[in-house]
């Protein structure tokens, strides 16, 4: 596992740096905005704008995890496809499924380690100026966006590892259709009741690149 993580780190570190900087810049922007709002407006106005008017103070962060997941998926798996380099990994003396799972585990760990500090920063800042209900509500609103990043990552990996263009197109259509649902609403609590399904869907998407890699290996 350590060796696969080492390879993936060498391969993607510049992209990971880019994604990390983008996350922190956005998180910092959200913090500054929250600070500005808390200083400019009274609590009733903020609460009213947030609860009743569906105004989001951190919408700039919305698509960042999605693009981060997409970028990491491409950075990890595009080099594996050039000259069908994935054969090198599949020939390693570890199980093929295990080898691909380790690659995905690296991506998952990277996205988590990038998103978690950014979320922590935003949550901590929100707790300074706002009540816990606001901070928790903010996290619940951000959760589908974070999950979309994982989904985009798994789907980009699956699309790239897929051998046939028909299956690739099908996967892109499914990914676009489902991921669109993650961005339908901005207002607080919109996704609370379906969040569990989003988590299940994202967890299920983990299997797609593994299935694609098995088809790659069998040449079908």
């Amino acid at each position: 596992m350590k060796a696969i993580f080492y390879k993936e780190w060498i391969k993607t570190r510049s992209y990971i740096a880019l994604i990390t900087v983008a996350h922190f810049a956005m998180a910092l922007y959200a913090v500054l905005k929250l600070r500005y709002i808390s200083g400019q407006y009274d609590a009733v106005s903020v609460w009213s704008a947030w609860i009743y008017k569906g105004y989001s103070f951190y919408s700039l962060y919305q698509y960042l995890p999605l693009f981060g997941g997409l970028l990491l998926g491409c950075a990890q798996f595009m080099p594996e496809l050039r000259d069908r380099r994935l054969r090198l990994v599949l020939h390693l003396p570890i199980g093929e499924r295990r080898a691909v799972t380790m690659h995905l585990a690296f991506g998952l760990a990277t996205l988590l380690s990038v998103a978690f500090p950014a979320l922590l920063l935003m949550y901590s800042a929100a707790r300074v100026w706002f009540p816990p209900e606001f901070a928790v509500g903010m996290l619940l609103t951000l959760a589908p966006w974070i999950l979309s990043g994982f989904g985009a990552y798994f789907f980009s990996a699956a699309v790239l590892l897929e051998g046939r263009w028909t299956r690739r197109i099908l996967l892109v259509l499914v990914a676009a259709g489902v991921l669109r649902l993650f961005f339908q609403e901005l207002s607080i609590g919109s996704y609370e009741r379906v969040l569990a399904y989003f988590i299940l869907w994202t967890a299920a998407a983990f299997c797609l690149p593994i299935m694609s890699s098995e088809r790659f290996r069998k040449g079908c």
């Binding site: 390879k7 060498i10 391969k11 080099p79 000259d83 069908r84 380099r85 054969r87 090198l88 020939h91």
Partner: peptide
């Protein structure tokens, strides 16, 4: 126990 040289000496160029 099996060494495999891929056509074109394919290896990881980023290393």
């Amino acid at each position: 126990r099996i060494g495999y040289l891929i056509e074109g000496h394919v290896q990881y160029g980023f290393f």
